[in-house]
Amino acid sequence: MSSANPTRACEGARHVDRYLDPTVRWTAAADAAMRGHLRTCDRCRGDYGRRVTLHRAMLGADLEMPSGFERGRMETALLDAAAPAPAPWWRFAVLPALAGAAVAVALWVTNAVPLPTPDPADYVGTRGGPSDEVTVGIGLSGVVAGREYEVVEGALYLDDALRITTSREVDEPDHAFIMGFQNGVTPIFYWPDPDNGELASMVVPRERSAALRAAGESIQFDLAGSHVAGRLVVVALFTPEPLSVAAVQEALGGFQMGEADRPELAAERLQATGAVVRSLSIDILPGSRRDASP
C-alpha cells in the first residue's frame, strides 16, 4: 500500500543511542529531533527514562538529575540554537565551490536493476564543481500496480507512486533530507516526515540505489493528492549530522512556491544549509503509466 505519509520505523532508540554516546557529536538538530520524537512516542519516552536513569546509576549520580555529561549535551544543543559557534572551516572550503554552480544535479534514474554508474547524459544540471565528487546521490522511479518503472524521458505519472532511492559511497555525509518542490504546491517532505514526528534528517544506508525504507519495507509516495501535473524538483541534502526541519525551513526563508517560476531556486537556497546538495528535475504527467504504455 502506498502512502504519502507512510508509517515509519521508530527512531527513538537510535536518537537515545547517539545522545548517550560520547564519541558522537551532539547538535541542536539532533536534540530537537530526539525530543520531538519523545513527545509523540510513549514507548520511546519510557525507554529514554530507563536508559538515562541507568546511565546515572552507573555513574553513582543523582537519578533525578541529568549527569554532567547529559547536561553538556543539553547545553551544546541549546547554545547551538541560541548562539551558533562559527561555522567549521570546511564549510568555507566547500561552499564557494558550490556557490558558483547552478544546482548540483545527479539524475540517477533507477529501476529494478542495480544503479548504473552515473552517465553524463543523465545529468540535467551541473555539478557543484571539481571538489564535489559524486559520492552521494538520489534516484527516482515510478510505481504502478506494484511494479516499478523507469523514469523515461524524465517523466512520471500523477496517478502512479514515486519511489526514491539514495546512493552513498562514503561514510559521511550519511544523513539525508529529501524534499520536493512544485509550482503552487507547499514544499513536500519525503524524508524526514515532520507530520510523523520526524524533525531532522535521517541516516540512509551506505549502498547504491537503496530505496527509502520504513519498518523494513520500501516507501513509495502516492503522487495524486500531494502533487500536481507539472515540473517536480526533488532536492536531497546530505550532511554528516542530522539536519533539522527548522534549519531547512530557515534556509528556504520566504521562498514561495506559488510565486516562483522556477522550483529549481529552492535547491539553490538550500545550499545555505551547508549540505551536499543533489537535486533532480522531472515532469509529472496526467494519468498513469499503465495507460500510456503500449
Partner: peptide
C-alpha cells in the same frame, strides 16, 4: 518522566 522534565528544561 525524565523525558518530559528535560524537554521542559530545554
Amino acid at each position: 518522566n525524565p523525558a518530559d522534565r528535560e524537554d521542559a528544561v530545554q
